[in-house]
């Protein structure tokens, strides 16, 4: 199986995700972009697993999913906490820590 197209897709997703983290100012959006990156990795893993005819890539994808879930939980907790204290989820508003 030729994984190229999957890889291209994965890379596009990853780029979108990383771009999102860097460019979007809303913490939630940035955070979802991170999830997008993880899923891009998943896709790549699964594609490679097919290419090698091995299962381990798929197993990794499973683990990545759990970890993504754990990240969601933690991340949401933190973002909600901030949101509650300052009623804004913008990354720019969180600027008490400056150089």
């Amino acid at each position: 199986m030729n994984p190229t197209s999957y890889l291209v897709l994965a890379t596009i997703l990853f780029t979108l995700g990383s771009g999102g983290v860097l460019l979007r100012r809303n913490a939630l959006v940035a955070f979802m972009s991170v999830e997008l990156m993880l899923n891009a990795a998943n896709l790549a893993f699964v594609a490679f697993a097919r290419m090698h005819g091995a299962l381990d890539g798929q197993i990794v994808a499973f683990f990545v999913m759990i970890i993504a879930a754990a990240e969601v939980v933690i991340g949401l907790a933190i973002i909600v906490m901030i949101f509650r204290t300052r009623r804004s989820a913008s990354v720019d508003d969180a600027s008490l820590l400056k150089l």
Partner: peptide, 19 residues
Amino acid sequence: EAAMKYFLLGAFASGFFIF
């Protein structure tokens, strides 16, 4: 705020790692 920054960037970095 520290937690959020750490989290966002940390998650970003682990995304890089896994990819």
